[in-house]
Nucleic acid binder design. Structure first.
Lengths: 236, 236
DNA sequence: ACCTGAACACCGTTCAAGT
DNA sequence: ACCTGAACACCGTTCAAGT
């Protein structure tokens, strides 16, 4: 679509730079040093090439990021869907998605905010639709269930991997923990009562990202709720 | 925590720049011209001040963004929770969250990737916990249900509002529509059969963001599934 | 077709200095 | 306490030119 127009005629010599290499090393850079460390210039020097050479292959940094995030979704290998039921299969797939995103936590913001159409994701979509067919829904409901599953699973993981701005050299964890503690009194009775459980464990009351502090049990619970909800709403 | 240390002693004269003003106008800029248009320099000129003056109040651009995204969550006015049931209330709140984020679609990536602890969100958390108390769960389950609800609702909306890189002057919508069409044949039978329904309507097969093309029906369905799932898993 | 090389128009942030 | 002003070390991207 955007990248290098693959030559119709045989090309003179193979290019020294492959689009897929660019995308791969971009992912390596992001994994190693974070999203901010991914710079067209840094990427170029890593590839031994001038920064401007990248533009011919990937168009722009935004398009590069889209390609990189598509890559990690591509790499998810879905399990076979015969000899299993839709619910067991969906639970497995949800955890596979989570594993994939946890392998590249620095990329989560991009996946969560760039998730749009991409040809390489079509096999993924196709498989999910095929499994959801077991539910015997009309097509409108099929769309909604599909969107519910994808949105909740990928959205939940995106939020899990979200992280605070890295400044805050001062208070840091103690600062937040104290702040939560200090809320004592009568203003927030629920938070006070469940302080021990919520602190650093729940959305909006944790100060570490899902990378440092995975929310395994809550994720498992969320997927169970999701599947139970689909069953309750769309079966019988 | 990070911003201007509020003076203990009476200050000589009121500052010409208030932290809250900076955050407010930052949101205005993001709403008007997008996230990339929010620049410390642009923000400063808008406020009639030198760029470096902002740093005293907000610390860094990352911290500013965190404050801005906290602001839109703050502004959500939760409905009263007496005279209602947990499920009806949660459905209402989910839609209120969605309305709030749709009012600032350009900020969605930040909310989705910066969602961590913030003191101003504590009332929000408290209210949700209080309503979930109706379910009569032990505290471990309370945590999981809370995380399930927050993660699915805010995560789903973040994904809904995600958008493709804005380049692509060429194919654009027709390009993607054609691409989906072209997948005909035997490779993707499900996608072929449901092409009309999926095209531009489902995650990974749409080319417009939820801003231009809200996924109202799918969101309503997702929330119903969520509530039904909680009921099925944690009641009786 | 694919890459070099220079150049443009920006960024966020630090820091000393003012008041 | 709060802001100015200059300066630093970068960015992404365009474009003409090479091969």
């Amino acid at each position: 679509m955007t990248g290098a127009p693959t030559g119709r005629r045989r090309r003179a010599r193979p290019p020294q730079l492959e689009r897929s290499d660019i995308i791969d090393t971009a992912l390596v850079l992001v994994d190693a040093d974070g999203l901010d460390a991914l710079t067209m210039r840094a990427l170029a020097t890593r590839l031994g090439v001038y920064p401007t050479a990248l533009y011919w292959h990937v168009g722009s940094k935004a398009q590069l990021l889209a390609a990189v995030s598509a890559l990690v979704l591509e790499r998810i290998e879905l399990p076979p869907d015969h000899d299993t039921t839709w619910d067991r299969w969906l639970v497995d797939v949800a955890h596979l998605c989570r594993n994939a995103m946890h392998r590249h936590p620095n990329l989560a913001p991009v996946i969560g905010s760039q998730l749009v159409v991409s040809t390489t994701a079509l096999p993924f979509v196709e498989r999910i639709l095929r499994v959801l067919e077991q539910l015997g829904l009309d097509s409108e409901d099929l769309l909604h269930v599909y969107n519910t599953v994808i949105g909740c699973v990928l959205g939940w993981i995106t939020l899990e991997l979200s992280r605070p701005p890295e400044d805050e050299e001062d208070g840091w964890q103690d600062g937040y923990a104290d702040e939560l503690q200090a809320v004592h009194g009568t203003a927030y009775p629920m938070l006070t009562r469940h302080h021990k459980l919520m602190a650093n464990n729940a959305f909006l009351t944790r100060w570490q990202s899902g990378e440092e502090r995975p929310m395994d049990a809550s994720f498992a619970a969320a997927i169970e709720v999701l599947v139970a909800g689909v069953r309750a709403r769309y079966l019988s």
